[in-house]
Design a protein around this nucleic acid. Structure first.
Lengths: 240, 240
DNA sequence: CGACTAATTGACCCGCCTCAAATTATGTGG
DNA sequence: CCACATAATTTGAGGCGGGTCAATTAGTCG
């Protein structure tokens, strides 16, 4: 597969083809391409910036007093997010290798909202979607076991990626998942292999997950599923 | 202390005295009094309702597939929240004995927003505040130890209650705290007594917390503070 | 080829969940 | 005021899940 780098026009056409809330501003949108780790800073004044994810993924992070990082929002294609320059404690950066955004200057958005009540309403709608996303994350992070957390995380990714249902492309590293779920990286790994052993998912490459038993993930029952394999050495203690 | 029940006019006067984003709608606001456990339902059509907390506390809950309840938002005095009738999976109810709300019909809010761009902007601001609240909760819930979680929860309550800094009145039960933090009730209790033993807080009654060592709470360092007392079984019991 | 990051697995142990019980509040009816 | 019921809070005992530390394997880029 050739991962050719596309020109801005290519993505602008994708953008045009998608129905979204800030459609009327598309003509004045700027296509921004980012690579993994690149920070999305707010360079233009106090009004901030609106962004729309066309391709890739973006994370919004807060740093805890102990140095640990918490991802408080994960933006995927078709998500909007807002970047302001107050709230300096937060960091926003692209996390997928090829991340492409549409950028809408805050000033212009405000202006439009002032003149077009319908547009203002859609803008409000976008804000509500962010809130819903955040509350779903709370539900996921609040899970008891790591199996639950990782499981519902995979589910939510699957539901957010409209295209391929049942085949989840992870746009993030295990570390990102860990920081999103507030668990350690090792635990994320163990949960993944565990879900595999239970026959709930299959890993096709490190970053591609096939969901084999969706019910198990939904009903938290995964925790009670019997192991397919007698879990070869796990519990090695008994074997020894 | 006589906890006399006040008339609606009493609370309307409080409302008038507070600067908030939906001020212009105050005249058409309805004062609603709720008792603990009473659900805030959306009785009026598809446009939903805006509420402003004057006194008390309100929780927004989601139910997990395993039956556990997760509080995804906690509204305190001077907070706004929105209730719509889609999203039926969520439950919103008063949790303080004496909870008083100002209710703004969604239709009227929309109407106002259409005609007054400045008002629409403030409405957007309110939505952002909800988002910020949610992301702070994520940070709290994502803490490693229960001590961290309870500690930062107390801190956030203290910061949100403008009046009495350093003296936190808990408007919620231990169960509510547990469901907010996604830990068990017992763990919340143990964390509280632990914080007491470490000299970080003092309990003046079950529902009143004095913060003695704010730094310890902020710097997650509380987990490493030495115990003041050798942790005998502390208090009353020793006197007997 | 090294240097780095990402991912995985193991061993160990502390902390939290579960279950159980005791101790208060808070109210309700006699 | 007391008997009783219920909810709220607290403490203990025990098991196990996940954090931490450590080591190994890939994969990527220069």
């Amino acid at each position: 597969m050739k991962t050719r780098t596309h020109a801005a026009d290519y993505y602008r056409r994708i953008l045009s083809a998608q129905p979204h809330a800030l459609k009327r501003l598309d003509p004045s949108a700027v296509i921004v391409k980012c690579h993994r780790g690149q920070e999305i800073s707010n360079d233009s004044g106090p009004v901030g910036h609106w962004y729309y994810v066309i391709v890739g993924a973006v994370r919004r992070c807060l740093i805890r007093s102990d140095g640990r990082r918490q991802i408080v929002d994960l933006m995927l294609p078709r998500d909007f997010f807002f970047v302001s320059d107050n709230r300096r404690e937060e960091t926003i950066e692209a996390i997928a290798e090829e991340t492409v955004l549409a950028s809408y200057p805050g000033g212009r958005v405000e202006l439009f909202a002032e003149r077009d009540p319908q547009f203002a309403r859609e803008l409000r709608e976008v804000a509500f979607q962010s809130l819903t996303r955040s509350q779903e994350q709370l539900l996921i992070v609040g899970g008891v076991t790591a199996l639950e957390k990782v499981g519902s995380f995979l589910l939510s990714l699957d539901e957010r990626a409209l295209e391929t249902r049942g085949q989840v492309e992870l746009p993030v590293t295990r570390y990102d998942i860990a920081e999103y779920l507030a668990v350690s990286v090792e635990t994320v790994c163990r949960a993944m292999t565990d879900l595999q052993h239970r026959g709930v998912i299959t890993l096709a490459g490190k970053r591609t997950v096939k969901i084999l038993n969706r019910g198990a993930l939904e009903d938290r029952a995964s925790a009670r599923l019997p192991d397919r394999r007698p879990k070869p050495m796990a519990l090695s203690r008994t074997a020894a």
